[in-house]
Amino acid sequence: MLATKQQQADNKMMAISTTDLSLWYGTFQALFDIKLDIKQGIITSMIGPSGCGKSTFLRTMNRINERLDYVRISGKVDVMGQNIFAPEVEILQVRKQVGMVFQRPNPLPISIRDNILFGHNIHSAGKTGKSEEGEIVESALQQVLLWDKVKDRLDHKATALSLEEQQKLCIARLLPVKPSVLLMDEPCSALDPKGTEAVEELLWDLRGKYTILIVTHNMAQARRASEECIFMLMGKVIEHRETGEMFLTPQHQETADYIEGRYG
């Protein structure tokens, strides 16, 4: 009895906790019985060779994978202590709670302001006043350190921004709906080194307020920009530890081989 309570307390600390999560694309199995507990408020990175299932795992966390009708999922995923596959769960609420940033910056082809307000408008029932909208836009852009750069051209098309600014905007537009988890699927792979650095700094700033789960191909990035690291291979989790430790003393041969660049 005491043990269960202890367990529940532990679960509350976890932003994401999965049990026996398996996923199939048609007949191809991409994830095998994934059991992961991702702590709240820190940055966790996921590394592994292409096709190891890290993006698939990420995309399962806000159920965006289900856009494809040939995806089949079994197992349990709790986000902030709630099973996101429970029948009474509204998929739109899951996606509000768990924001996602994509590999290629994908601002909507509307103004910067409307991009920021998009999520807010679809999730708020009534009309929002002009001044409140202004505050929302300013606060979101301030948080991603973009406000000073774009405050004079909020009505310009978001697609005209530089890639780095677009990616920051894509992060900023998630913030007004107050998500608890931010998923990032190789958010820097379309950016140059300067842009990468800027986005990494931003992630570090956002940490604590949000739980961040970032998929990356760049091991140096995983090392410098995350607190815990997950190594995946062939749809299975091989190792999940504190980042520094994992890179210094990997427990598994596969992990060691991968981070030393022997494959992948």
Binding site: R67, Q93, R95, L108, G119, I122, C170, L174
Partner: peptide, 19 residues
């Protein structure tokens, strides 16, 4: 990717089409 972006923010099918 526009549709995906909007859906990932929790937009319904109709909101994606309309907005």
């Amino acid at each position: 990717r526009y549709r995906e972006a909007a859906e990932a923010m929790g937009a319904t099918r109709w909101q994606v089409i309309y907005k």
